[in-house]
């Protein structure tokens, strides 16, 4: 347990297993995600990260196990019910409303709220995530990096308490990734819980409070970035050799 276990977790995953036609995608996965923290979920390709995101957001029913949001069992609730409890997500392969403009995409998120977004505006959110392009442009014409940011802005529009980000940095250059990292820290500092799947190791090690390592559908390690960096099992499974420059 890390030092700030005082705050009760926003998301609790308990013993979740998923199999696809006999292949185990997730086996007995348990994890916590706490408000005010950026939690990293790492693991090699095929480790089950996206499947876990789908289970948490309600797009995939687990065969076994339980998902709790704010202490409430949501395993049987549909994705929209979970969203109303404060869960938002982005997708590894973009799920934008392709025939709408960037602004309309974010507006759709604002409209989904009871208070219609309060004092938040689509323009303001796009600005916050750093979208440079014309907000009235149809999103399917945007470059991937920009489109990813629009998806993030749309997720933020529902003012989530927990936000799941599936590889938010792919398609971004180093500088943009840095900016995004800063934004994610900011979101955590606002008291939100952030769970991020990302392959950009330096960034993950830099911004995360805690890292969960998934391999072959199982959690093989949990801990602070330093602890993860040193974990021999993790190094073997994922980070490569101990002195791999990428890992240091």
């Amino acid at each position: 347990m890390s030092s700030d276990s005082m705050t009760s977790p926003f998301l609790e995953v308990r013993g979740v297993s998923v199999t696809f036609g006999g292949v185990a995608a997730l086996t007995q996965v348990s994890l916590d995600v706490r408000p005010g923290e950026v939690t990293g979920l790492i693991g090699p390709n095929g480790a089950g990260k996206t499947t876990l995101f789908n289970v948490i957001s309600g797009l995939q029913r687990p065969d076994k196990g339980e998902v709790q949001l704010v202490g409430r069992d949501v395993t049987k609730l549909g994705p929209h019910r979970r969203a109303r409890l404060g869960l938002a997500r982005t997708f590894q392969r973009l799920e934008l409303f392709g025939s709408l403009s960037a602004r309309e995409n974010v507006q759709a998120g604002l409209d989904a709220r009871r208070d219609k977004g309060g004092d938040l505006t689509a323009q303001g959110l796009l600005h916050r995530v750093g979208v440079q392009a014309d907000a009235d442009r149809q999103v399917s014409t945007l470059p991937t990096g920009e489109a990813r940011l629009v998806e993030l802005a749309r997720a933020l529009a529902i003012d989530p308490k927990l936000i799941l980000l599936d590889e938010p940095c792919s398609g971004l250059d180093d500088h943009e990734s840095q900016l995004l990292g800063g934004l994610l820290r900011e979101l955590a500092d606002e008291g939100r819980a952030v769970l991020i799947v990302e392959h950009d190791m330096p960034l993950v090690l830099d911004i995360c409070d805690r890292i969960i390592v998934l391999d072959f559908g199982q959690v093989i390690a949990t801990g602070s970035p330093d602890a993860i960096r040193q974990d021999p099992g993790v190094q073997a499974a994922y980070l490569g050799a101990a002195n791999d420059p990428e890992a240091s």
Binding site: S57, G58, L59, G78, P79, H80, R82, A83, R84, L87, A88, R89, F91, E95, L96, F97, G98, S99, L100, E104, N105, Q107, A108, G109, D111, A112, R113, E151, R154, A155, A157, I158
Partner: peptide, 20 residues
Amino acid sequence: RRLVALNDSPAAFATLGMSP
């Protein structure tokens, strides 16, 4: 806008808290 969104991506539609 909702209808178009539903058509373009039902998954994203639901994860924003709207019931398809």
